[in-house]
Design a protein around this nucleic acid. Structure first.
Lengths: 129, 129
DNA sequence: CCGAATCCTTGACGATACTG
DNA sequence: CAGTATCGTCAAGGATTCGG
């Protein structure tokens, strides 16, 4: 098995666009949820799995491995009887979390405006029907 | 044709998590590229299509329509002989663009660290093989 | 020129089963 | 407990065609 990493969904833009860098790491369904869940300290594998509803072990381990490879989070295994593994944010991961917070803020503040815009947009569709 | 909008890729979290709100709008391949392309003024449909390599008309019109519905960008059609359509950022869209810039900044500053982390990670894989 | 409609491929994700 | 391996599903997106 060759350990070639996910070529991600991009071909051309990956290297050129820094925004892509972020999106390719956080754009999936779960990465942000995981980051959010880790911000208050280390969390174990199955704890994450339980807390995030609908997330399968397969995908969880995939995302964790990718984020660990990127240096965004750290994995520590304890040689207890059944193995214990904790995941935590690295300093790099914490700065990322902060940057994401800016967007979260935007979303919270502008959610109403977006809803309103949608209402109006759908309304205009009605009258032209 | 029912005008039900994309239920997006989420079931549970959509309403609860504001981060989702952003990601569901910008998480696809192209939205960010389009936003970036529009920041300096109105751009025409085919101009966007040409400038963003690999983007099909179908997907372009989909994304444009969605962003227009969200009030992030505006569409203006001129009744010229072959129709002319311009897309531009709304005020709301501009604030979003600013918020995104925070992430872009993070990416630019930390790209080297990520690359380094990947190198080290892959290196550790080698020696354990 | 600006799209909408259709078909098809691909890859992300879920479910399940199995290992250390 | 913490994963890996395999399979099937499903929707995003590319290619193409047609309409206003």
């Amino acid at each position: 098995m060759v350990t070639s990493q996910t070529p991600s969904r991009f071909d051309v833009f990956n290297q050129h666009c820094p925004t892509r860098l972020v999106l390719d790491r956080l754009g999936d369904k779960w990465a942000l949820l995981i980051l959010h869940r880790l911000q208050d300290g280390p969390v174990r594998f199955n704890s994450l799995r339980r807390d995030i509803d609908g997330l399968s072990q397969k995908v969880l381990s995939q995302v964790l491995k990718r984020l660990e490879r990127d240096g965004i989070l750290a994995r520590q295994a304890f040689p207890t009887v059944p193995v214990t593994v904790e995941y935590s944010l690295t300093p790099l991961g914490r700065t990322l979390k902060q940057a994401v917070s800016a967007l979260t803020h935007w979303a919270e503040e502008n959610m109403p405006q977006i809803m309103a815009a949608q209402q109006e947009y759908d309304g205009r569709l009605q009258e032209s029907a």
